[in-house]
């Protein structure tokens, strides 16, 4: 099972994490309907590297931004996000 380096907890087993959505599907609250609909229903879904939102659900509970190759599962980086990530 893959390990994911949580910026808050260190290397943890993938089973502790939950994939939530691709980063390009985050719809800003003030998005025009066409933009919101496109973001939700017509995503790029690349065969390759994309940014994704994950959550360390069975660990610290924090949201993470992960850049991951969807073919090899190689993780390029993991960043903390949300208010808790602010300096």
């Amino acid at each position: 099972m893959k390990q994911i380096p949580c910026p808050h907890c260190g290397n943890r087993a993938q089973a502790e994490f939950v994939y939530e959505r691709s980063a390009d599907s985050v719809v800003p609250l003030d998005a025009e309907p066409a933009v919101a609909i496109a973001a939700l229903f017509s995503r790029a879904n690349l065969r390759g590297t994309e940014e994704e939102l994950w959550r360390h659900a069975h660990g610290c509970g924090m949201w993470l931004l992960i850049r991951r190759d969807r073919v090899s599962h190689h993780i390029e980086w993991v960043k903390p996000i949300g208010p808790e990530a602010l300096p």
Binding site: E20, V26, V27, P28, L29, L53, R55, A57, G61, W63, I81, G82, P83, E84
Partner: peptide, 13 residues
């Protein structure tokens, strides 16, 4: 709980 933390963290940080 997940939804509220998503809204809180990503839509109105």
């Amino acid at each position: 709980a997940t939804w509220l933390s998503y809204v809180r963290g990503h839509l109105c940080a």
